[in-house]
Design a protein around this nucleic acid. Structure first.
Lengths: 198, 198
DNA sequence: TAAAGGTTTGTGAATATTCACTAACTTATT
DNA sequence: AATAAGTTAGTGAATATTCACAAACCTTTA
């Protein structure tokens, strides 16, 4: 779990992220990465075995980071509805500061690239499921969310809306305030998944 | 609008679709396309000026087809809720028969590839918006859908859920019954966007 | 202290492979 | 005869990766 990463490796991951957010998956070449770092292409291979390894390291870093953040949020909140909101805001704040991860996680170009990359991306999704699903289930039990729809499907709708928002943000060149739009989406989702009071 | 396409061109588009669904965007090369067609690479260029032109033609075909289908559905249904359901089922049935379009439309690898491809994909999304938005708005007016959330945002949630379903289907290698899962999603969505009866 | 040897991190050149695309030629159909 | 639709055999550019080598630094030993 405690993936050890050298300073240089971290710099490379950051550089790769910058390229991803600016030039997309197809722009992420060893040549561009080396240029971004300011050294020759061959030097990249002093720190990573392959391009694939760089991307996997990047995704693993995100997975660990996300696991930590979500764990923190769950630990410091009690009410399911409140926790869900905190998770939402946590994600929004994180992606707002690290837009390249939007490209990394929500792109299929990378998923096609290799099996290990694909697995890494799915792992990230599962981190979210791991925290969201019990939360939604609990919220249903407590009467905060509608019991008419299975928790898995409620989660599907929430995650789908979130992903589409990220897609739109990226398509717009990260040109609008994702936190603001995210807040609005969240508000709407809460309205919709609330149980009807009769 | 009346995009004229020769028989061979249509065959090429179909072959490209088959490759897309089996090998993804990265598998769609002229070499593979020629192999699929059973002739040499250079012969492809007898029918299309470039690879880009093939993809654009494919997307335009989808756009026209979709426009036609949605127009048909809207014309033969009256009730907004009923129309929305019919659109949903129409899409499910179409994608179920043409899974390659899922790859084409919901992939970012293609969007990055060129400006004209990007525009073609966005055009397809807009065809959906054009039909869905008035429908949802009307449904809200008639008290079939909740008025608490703006129509645009309701549409966002619906489209996001649908896209995620397509993503999951593709990730699973088109290995489950998309019509069935789609029906379930639709049922859940309808439950959720229904206005509370007090 | 100074030399010897090892490690880290870089360089520039070269590798094989893949890619979209093209020129010139052949063949069949009308 | 002319056109459409195929072929063979190339092109140059881009790709990830490997190679032998070198400068700078650290550690051991005489």
């Amino acid at each position: 779990m405690a993936t050890n990463i050298s300073n240089r490796q971290f710099e490379l991951i950051e550089a790769a992220g910058k390229i991803l957010s600016e030039a997309g998956v197809s722009g992420l070449t060893i040549k561009n990465l080396a240029r971004q770092m300011g050294f020759a292409e061959s030097a990249v291979y002093r720190h990573f075995d392959s391009k694939e390894a760089i991307i996997v390291a990047m995704l693993n870093y995100l997975a660990e980071n996300m696991e930590e953040r979500l764990g923190q949020v769950v630990a410091t909140t009690s009410n399911p509805s409140e926790t869900l909101e905190a998770i939402f805001q946590n994600h929004l704040s994180f992606f707002s500061k690290n837009p390249h991860f939007v490209v990394a996680v929500f792109s299929d170009g990378l998923m096609e690239a290799s099996q290990s990359i694909n697995a890494a991306i799915l792992r990230i999704m599962q981190v979210n499921v791991k925290y969201l699903l019990p939360l939604i289930y609990e919220g249903q039990q407590q009467g905060q969310f509608t019991p008419n729809v299975p928790a898995e499907d409620l989660m599907h709708i929430i995650m789908g809306s979130f992903r589409l928002l990220m897609f739109k943000w990226r398509s717009a060149g990260f040109g609008f305030d994702i936190s603001l739009k995210g807040q609005q989406l969240m508000t709407n989702l809460f309205k919709i998944i609330q149980p009807c009071r009769n």
